[in-house]
């Protein structure tokens, strides 16, 4: 018994070092389930039951797949459309729905022609979640006829992200109401 235990202690770290290619965590639903002498015959594992507390990630994934799956999008459709809507006031340079990137061209607000902005947005994954979108804003100011890079206030990026998320929520509630 002692030898078995020692062998297990030695082998485990070695097994952990094996290449990840042929190693995987066995999921909870791959184990049998018995109640007394008889089998239980019900689904088990991490997706069992109905979520009563916390966020149901699987449902989010299902819904995102349902929302985005038909339109050929590889990213969450709500976040994608919300990002496009939010950045619509700027001219679009490129939009890749598979990579989830939206890049705008330079845009100078009519009220202040001496500065211009450009935005890059990344929509990540199929799930509708608060960290599923990243927005990066670049700013340049005109000095003696030359555009030079200038810092953007720290809050600008997160304010854009908040706007995207708010719009995504709006879109989702609209589609849910249908």
């Amino acid at each position: 018994m002692k030898h078995l235990f020692l062998a297990a202690c030695t082998v485990l770290p070695l097994m952990a070092g094996c290449s990840a290619e042929n190693r995987r965590l066995v999921q909870n639903d791959e184990y049998g389930d018995w109640r007394g002498s008889s089998v239980r015959n019900r689904p088990s594992g991490a997706s069992s039951g109905l979520v009563i507390f916390g966020v149901d990630k699987e449902r989010q994934e299902r819904e995102a797949a349902a929302a985005g799956g038909g339109s050929g999008l590889a990213v969450n459709a709500y976040l994608w459309r919300a990002t496009l809507d939010t950045l619509a006031f700027m001219p679009l340079a490129s939009a890749d729905p598979f990579g989830g990137t939206i890049i705008t061209d330079w845009y100078a607000p009519p009220a202040s022609q001496n500065e211009r902005f450009r935005a890059q947005a990344y929509v990540m994954g199929r799930q509708l979640r608060s960290d599923g979108v990243r927005v990066q804003v670049f700013r340049q100011v005109q000095e003696r006829g030359q555009w030079v890079d200038a810092p953007v206030s720290a809050a600008t990026n997160s304010e854009f992200e908040d706007k995207v998320l708010a719009r995504a929520r709006e879109l989702r509630s609209q589609s849910a109401a249908r």
Partner: peptide, 10 residues
Amino acid sequence: QAPTVRVGGY
């Protein structure tokens, strides 16, 4: 991921 609590059974 914050923990989820699920209720299941049969």
